[in-house]
């Protein structure tokens, strides 16, 4: 991707890993993992007896199995745990069948629903996952099971990839885009094109006309928010509502989606990018319990 072409990589979001230093995984009965290999980012979540123990969040490389391994290695870093200590791993996401150490592959729709239920509690009914190359609106029941969903995976409008393109165009770091887009006195009219390619040329024209970056970003964020609200409205939205995925970290999008819907999204307690991997790890826990019962 853009790795070797740009001198300043404005699109680069921050990778991270974490583990709970107060938990001793050696005392755990069930150690499970969920590995979400997305088109843009990959995550691994490790759970001990159904509790979050460690996670990693990093960029997906050109090779899916390698990306899965890298995300796993990074989650394990500093824990003293090795891959052999994990009893059951589930792969999910776009590259789910290419997770070498996973016993099962489960769709990201199911995993995001399950993960959102864990992150936000059983009152969550509508989940909007705004990922790198697709956007899904999911209705879930109180157990975190999928009731229905709608997905846009054909078009970059309303995805993280579209936002990366804009960050690069304006030379604004992707983590600053949301905040900056809110620094306008009043909302400008939204860019008229939903297509990222056309929106980009429209934005260039607005910049040449003398619009400040903040205003151009506001016009784009509005269009992007409008686009995903359309998806949510087709599915039918019911509270509680939450947004997962990388775009959930963009306040410029989140606040505009909330405003157009007239509904507030629940505040996340965890990194919104790991929702799918959490769901995977929870499925892994349940599957292992079932397996052990049979024996």
């Amino acid at each position: 991707m853009a790795e070797d072409t740009t001198s300043k990589d404005y699109w680069r979001w921050t990778e991270s890993n974490w583990h709970d230093p107060d938990m001793d995984w050696r005392e755990g009965d069930i150690i499970s993992a969920g590995v979400d290999v997305g088109s843009v980012s990959s995550q691994t979540v490790i759970m001990v007896d159904g509790k979050l123990y460690a996670y990693s969040n990093m960029r997906t490389g050109s090779d899916s199995p390698k990306s899965a391994e890298n995300a796993m290695d990074w989650a394990l870093e500093g824990t003293g745990m090795t891959l052999d200590d994990i009893h059951y791993a589930v792969g999910t996401g776009y590259g789910r069948v290419n997770v070498p150490f996973a016993k099962r592959a489960i769709t990201e729709i199911a995993c995001h629903a399950r993960g959102a239920n864990f992150m936000y509690g059983p009152t969550i009914k509508t989940v909007l996952d705004m990922g790198g190359q697709d956007c899904k609106a999911i209705r879930v029941d109180q157990k975190g099971k999928v009731v229905s969903f709608l997905m846009n995976d054909k078009c970059a409008a309303g995805t993280g990839r579209g936002m990366e393109v804009f960050a690069d165009l304006l030379g604004v770091h992707i983590t600053k885009v949301g905040e900056m887009s809110l620094q306008v006195d009043e909302e400008p009219p939204m860019v008229s094109s939903t297509c990222v390619v056309f929106a980009k040329s429209e934005a260039s024209a607005l910049l040449r006309e003398g619009w400040p970056k903040e205003k151009v970003l506001a016009a784009y964020c509005l269009a992007m928010a409008h686009r995903v609200v359309g998806l949510l409205e087709r599915l039918g939205i019911e509270e509680d509502f939450a947004i997962t995925g990388g775009i959930a970290k963009n306040i410029g999008i989140v606040s505009r989606v909330e405003k157009e819907l007239g509904i507030k999204a629940l505040k996340p307690s965890l990194d919104t990018q790991i929702a799918g991997a959490i769901g995977g790890a929870l499925f892994a826990t349940a599957l292992l319990k079932k397996e052990r019962k049979k024996k």
Binding site: M1, S62, Q133, C155, A156, R161, G162, V165, V196, V197
Partner: peptide, 17 residues
């Protein structure tokens, strides 16, 4: 990929491959 934005990444992957 259908979308030009996604197709661009696909072209880059094809070059890498």
């Amino acid at each position: 990929a259908q979308c030009a934005v996604f197709a661009e990444s696909e072209v880059v992957s094809l070059i890498h491959a």
